[in-house]
Design a protein around this nucleic acid. Structure first.
Lengths: 195, 195
DNA sequence: GGATAAACCGACCCACGGGTCGGTTTTATT
DNA sequence: AATAAAACCGACCCGTGGGTCGGTTTATCC
């Protein structure tokens, strides 16, 4: 069962959902169609279940939990994104951000699936906002910072760079991206009292 | 011919390439298969031609030409992106950035098509870098600014926000995004000589 | 060990998808 | 008007894709 979902997610991620057939998944698993349709109502149902368990777990593990801390959120976020980009650089078969790719693939095309993807996105966003607000309270961020906007900007740029890094020179792109992210973050820091 | 490509691009954009059949395009055009395969070798060839003409034109018109100017590039870029986002907000059937969506869909899955998409991406990036460098020369940007990195960061965030805006509250997202972009840009401006 | 259900198998169904091809209409040329 | 080339038609091919179903194996419980 775990194996089915792992394999399914891997194939959907690497080849795209519409470009991956149930037979593809079955071949990889050496499993019969009967077994598959005994466990899942349809290809879509299969994918929804993958999202709810597998994809959600991965998002928590890589992008949500790592920023939960009482330290300076800007520092935590930088480290978290840096780690994720570094992993991507060293991953031979990187195809971008799991969540980002699926959102791009299903945007406006499948309401059911988008609902589940948006749920994860919302959790991610909220966890960022929460971390930033805590940082404001703790004096790490300037009090004029718009946490929702910053959160959105971070997610946007991250989804974008993950897509762009699939192409050539991922490592160089990672450095360039991180340099600008840090630059941007510096402008969010609490201003010295000397104003 | 123009109609064929326009329709093809529209369908591939709104439904995705893999999720759109040649028959779909034909039905929309009220055209026979024979006519289609008289003009194009294959579905892929059809798409490549669309990229080379139609998609390229649109990219120039919306994101490349508008930033070619002798004014302050930061101002130009802000206005250009703002305009594009505003158009997206008012477009009932917006599905994200044309180029960005296709890149996400074909990343690592079709070398031929990716080559063409990357060509456009490279042109866009170069035009941004050029504009920024000119801005540096003209004293609009701080001389320590890494133009390649800034350009990459802009593209990343733009591709990301376009994807996110397909969901709910595009207008609110646009404002939040723009506010942070401007914030970031402020940190790139030439420092007052008082340093 | 017999009964019952859960888990699984794979042949089969049928619509769809990309692509072909023999033939017909349209257009341009002389 | 004759001719040839360009443009077009749509029936057809065949592999694929999602999904079904009658039957078989495997676990479970008494």
């Amino acid at each position: 069962m775990q194996r089915m979902q792992d394999t399914g997610l891997r194939l959907f991620y690497t080849q795209g959902y519409f470009n991956t057939s149930v037979d593809d998944v079955l071949k990889e698993l050496q499993m019969s169609k009967g077994a598959f349709y005994y466990h899942f109502d349809s290809k879509e149902d299969f994918f929804v279940q993958i999202i709810q368990t597998n994809l959600t777990h991965r998002m928590y593990a890589s992008l949500i939990d790592p920023i939960k801390s009482h330290e300076n959120p800007l520092v935590r976020i930088v480290k978290c994104l840096e780690d994720n980009l570094e992993t991507a650089v060293h991953n031979e078969l990187d195809f971008g951000c799991l969540l980002g790719n699926f959102i791009a693939e299903f945007n406006g095309r499948n309401e059911t699936i988008m609902k589940h993807l948006n749920d994860i996105l919302a959790i991610w966003e909220v966890s960022l906002v929460t971390a930033l607000q805590k940082g404001k309270f703790n004096g790490h961020l300037d009090r004029h910072v718009d946490c929702e906007a910053v959160s959105l900007y971070i997610i946007s740029s991250y989804l974008g760079i993950r897509t762009l890094m699939v192409g050539t020179a991922p490592s160089a792109k990672k450095y360039r991206f991180m340099s600008q992210l840090k630059h941007y973050f510096k402008s969010l820091e609490a201003r010295p009292i000397t104003a």
